[in-house]
């Protein structure tokens, strides 16, 4: 079954479903405890095999959404369904790729990739074979025995992607994975991610604050509002020549979509800046970190 077939067949199905999800944090300031709403009433459906990009101003709750979906924290209200079932905690059906790679520095590239396979209970040989396979998939064959500090940023992120793919999760959650990379490395990793997505058929939820990145990668782009984060709009990206050689980014259609999202975001960024200034003057809840 080709990727396109798979997708059209499952058009009505929903892989991930955020249903009126709200997350509040308790923030302690001296003796007073206040509530802080990070995301509010988020509704978002992601189809099986879909590449969904989420853009929003920084601090709008993108990572919070991802944590919720990963099962690392629970929503204050609302629910998140994965294959129609509420999420009950972390699990190997979802893989996360973080901006800061989060590789274990004491493990070689291969041993890092094996980590999830160990959690899955695979034997030594099986782990090694799969680790090699995924290292090859991300273009790092021959780097098995390198430690993270011996790899460049781009290579580290490739290892991190391989690690998350290796235990074969159905959903890949990526939290601004390319934000720390230089422009050239970022572009080549974006192209490669699309290639990997097409080959593996994973459902990908890709968080970014880059509009270009969102338009280039996503089949749909969810635009979030400033804090408290909600889904403001979902923009369809009908460009479908991703794996071809030509420079999609310079096309007119790309430019138009880019501008559309940019306009949506601009007001949000202004709002979030205004919010920040307000907080800076000392009233209300403070940004806690």
């Amino acid at each position: 079954m080709s990727h396109a077939e798979q997708q059209s067949r499952s058009l009505e199905e929903v892989k991930i479903s955020f249903q009126d999800v709200t997350k509040r944090f308790r923030v302690r300031e001296g003796r007073t405890v206040s509530e802080f709403t990070a995301v509010e009433g988020v509704n978002l459906d992601v189809r099986p095999g879909e590449f969904m990009a989420v853009v929003g101003p920084s601090g709008c709750g993108k990572s919070t959404l991802l944590d919720l979906l990963a099962g690392l924290s629970e929503p204050t209200s609302g629910q998140i369904l994965l294959d129609g079932k509420p999420i009950s905690g972390p699990g190997l059906d979802r893989g996360i790729v973080f901006q800061q790679y989060a590789l274990f520095p004491w493990r070689t590239a291969q041993a890092n990739i094996e980590f999830g396979l160990e959690a899955k209970g695979y034997g030594v040989k099986e782990r090694r074979d799969w680790a090699r396979h995924y290292l090859e998939l991300v273009g790092l064959a021959g780097f098995e025995n390198r430690y993270p500090h011996e790899l460049s940023g781009g290579m580290k992120q490739r290892v991190a992607i391989a690690r998350s793919l290796a235990f074969d999760p159905e959903v890949l959650l990526m939290d601004e994975p390319f934000a720390a990379l230089d422009a050239q490395t970022r572009e080549s990793l974006q192209a490669e991610l699309l290639r990997i997505w097409e080959r593996t058929g994973k459902t990908i939820l890709f968080i970014t604050h880059g509009i270009d990145e969102a338009v280039y990668l996503g089949q749909r782009v969810a635009v979030m509002t400033a804090r408290p984060g909600r889904i403001k709009r979902i923009v369809d990206i009908p460009i479908d020549k991703r794996s071809e050689e030509e420079d999609i980014r310079s096309g007119a259609e790309f430019g138009a979509l880019r501008h559309e999202i940019w306009s949506e975001l601009r007001t949000e960024v202004q709002r979030s800046q205004a919010l920040r200034q307000e907080l800076g003057s000392g009233s209300g809840t403070k940004k806690a970190r």
Binding site: F98, A102, F115
Partner: peptide
Amino acid sequence: LLVKSARSLG
């Protein structure tokens, strides 16, 4: 982050 990354695998 390492703890989070490991925890996310359950």
